[in-house]
Every structure is written in structure tokens, then in C-alpha cells.
Design a protein around this nucleic acid. Sequence first.
DNA 1: ACAATCGTGTAATGACTATTACACCTTCGC
DNA 2: GCGAAGGTGTAATAGTCATTACACGATTGT
Lengths: 203, 203
Amino acid sequence: MTDEFECDRLDRRRRAITDAARALFIEQGFERTTLGQIVERAGGSLATIYKLFGNKEGLLDAVVFEKAASGENLIREITQCGASPADTLRRLAAVLYERFLDPDDVALVRIVIARSIEDADFARRFFESTAMHTRRALERTFAQWEAQGVRLYGPPDMLAEVFLGLMVSDMQTDAISHGVVARPSAERIAARIEFFLRGAGLA
Amino acid sequence: MTDEFECDRLDRRRRAITDAARALFIEQGFERTTLGQIVERAGGSLATIYKLFGNKEGLLDAVVFEKAASGENLIREITQCGASPADTLRRLAAVLYERFLDPDDVALVRIVIARSIEDADFARRFFESTAMHTRRALERTFAQWEAQGVRLYGPPDMLAEVFLGLMVSDMQTDAISHGVVARPSAERIAARIEFFLRGAGLA
DNA sequence: ACAATCGTGTAATGACTATTACACCTTCGC
DNA sequence: GCGAAGGTGTAATAGTCATTACACGATTGT
């Protein structure tokens, strides 16, 4: 009767709880959200939360890494469909803007950062499974192009860092800091890509 | 008898309290730091804190904006000493790395972000008085160079965004997220600057 | 020195919330 | 239908901490 799976009653409960928790965490942050509010929205009871997630932090863990896992294959799909480097980077930029500036994603990153003050390892794991993942995938792509005879101004790891920094890091930093960031226009994105291609020796 | 000023007894008290508060906020974050701990480290009493800062948030405000104000004239000093654009940007990059990756600064930004979940305006004010300030100063510098006949590939506001994004945003994002970020080597910084100069048409 | 001002130390207030315990009721296999 | 397994709702536990109140002692201007 649910939308996707129905393996078990517990699975439905689990899903309902993480959905409610994610929404509330995004609205109010982790600390201000009480387990009572989550139960109120998801139905069920406190005891179920403790049975499924151990404690409040376990619930945050589940919420955050569920979301982080959902973007894993993104880069690979785009970089492996054989388009030219320039076209690949153009398409990649569009996807990165979409993903990294998504308000829910930004809110989750804020929560991870806030939590990281008390639990640095939590943030490191999140960071490793998102930003680092993206960066290394891109680095491999540059290395692959180089192996195919494309001449690049600079080593793949630097180019990967620079591409990501150039495209979204500054805006993501602004967004995370609650600066008012408008989604950049298509022309603005295009200008940044051309800038990158010139700097990398691809144009 | 104090190091700098001694206008008043209250001023000394104020300084001692914000110093202790800053250190504790950086160590533990805002929420986990109790006013009791601050009193314990700074001496004095709870009543004094309430008299000087109103409440705990007022104290955070004082700590954060005291630090933010200290970097106001940084860009202006560097951009107005008449060096060539390339040299100016080189020197600017060094200063930005120094400042934006300073662990205490990064810890404060984390605190601002955490707080911003509950008070978005707080973060906006911080952001306006730091990152936006830097960006606009840099934008004016590019516009000035253009007016002096330097030809640039792209409008000053885009170049300012791109320069900051390229130099430090990605690393600052990593640092804020508790990713392990090594201070980049001189060669790495130099490579990024050359990358920017190529992209901007300055080399 | 003196008195008034003002910071200090302590303790009380009041509210909040993660976590646990417990007694019902629903669900599912048979 | 029946009985066990396991959610559910409620309430108790227990600790924390911002904030306020208050009586005491130090400091300062005269």
C-alpha cells in the first residue's frame, strides 16, 4: 500500500520516521528538533525510534547518509558517456549547480557542520562520502582525458579542485552561510566554464 | 596595566569576557559553552555578563563581529599600493589563504553557520560584513584596472567571484566541513594564480 | 576615611528534553 | 479466533542551563 516497497511493517515505520526527521531537521535544525515532534509528525512512538536508531544521533546519522548515498553515481554517469571534454564539463556544471545549491541539501550541510563542532568525525565521514567522492571521480576523468592525448595545463588533481571551486564552492559557501545567493543565469554559468576551459588549456 | 587600553574598569571586564567566550566558543561551540564556564575562565560574575551583553546571544554577537571587523581594510591595503595586477593578485592570494584557513576563523564560521539555522539574519549580517565586503572590494579593483586600460576576459563582478572561488572557497568549504585540508604549498598557490591569470586574460 | 556605586559569589527559579519504564492494544502466524 | 511478539501512548526520571534575585564586599570620588 506504500509508494515503493512494503517489505515489512518496520521498514515503513523506519521510512516514515526518517522522512519526518529530515523535514524537521531541515526546518529547525538538529538541536531544536525534539524527538517528541518527530513522533508527532511520523506517528508511532518514542520507543520505536530508540529501537530502530538507538538514540537521537543515530537518527541523524540515518537521515544524513541516506541523502548522501543518493548522489553517488552522479559524476560517473556524466563523465562516462563519451562526450567531448568541453561538453562533459558543461553538462557536469549544470548538474552540480542543481545539486549543490538545492535548499534542502544546503540545509543538511548546515546541520552536518553544526554537528561537527561536537563530533568532528561525523562531518569527516559525510565529507568523505560526498565532496571527496566527487573530486576524485573528476580527477580520474581528467587523468583519463590526458591519457587519451588531451593536453591540459596542470595536473588532474589541481584541475579537479579548481573546477569544483570555480563552479560551485563560492556559491555553496554563500548559501551555507545564509548569504542571499541567486541561482546563476545560464550565461553566467557558461562564462565560468569558458573561463575554466581557457585556464585549463581546453579552449 | 593592560596591554592596550585602560579607559575603564568595565572595558577591561568586557575584554576579558569576550576573550574567554571566544576561546570557549572556538573550543566547544556556542551551545555547549555555558555562561558558567565563561565566568569561571574570565573571572567576574554572571550579572556582569548580563549587564554588558544582555544575554548569551548578545555575547556571541560581540565576539563574532569584533573578529569580523578586524579584517575590514585588508583588501584595500593590498589593492591600493600600485603594484601590477598580477603581483597584486599574488599578494592578495597569500593573505586570503592565511586569513580564510586560519583555524580560529574557520571555527568561528562554523559557529555562525550553526547559529544561522535558528537566526538566519545573524549569518546574513556576518556574511555581509566579511565575504561580501571582500568581494566588492575586489570587484572595484578589477573595474579600476579596466578603466586604466587593462583588458580583461569577463566583467569585474564575475572575475571577483571567480578569483575568490578559485583561491579559497573550495578549501574553506572543506575546512568548515572538517575535511582534512593541508595548507597548500607555494607552488600550488602559484599554479592557481597562473590558472586565473590565463582565464582572465592577464597572462 | 566615607558613603554610595557597582561588581561579585551564590543560590533559586523555571523550563526543557533525552532517555527509560510500563501497562495497553494491535497485528500476524497458525 | 488465539496467543505471542512487538508497537503504542503515557508518564516518570534526571540532568542541564539560561536567566533572575539578593546580600556582601570592593572600589572610587570627594
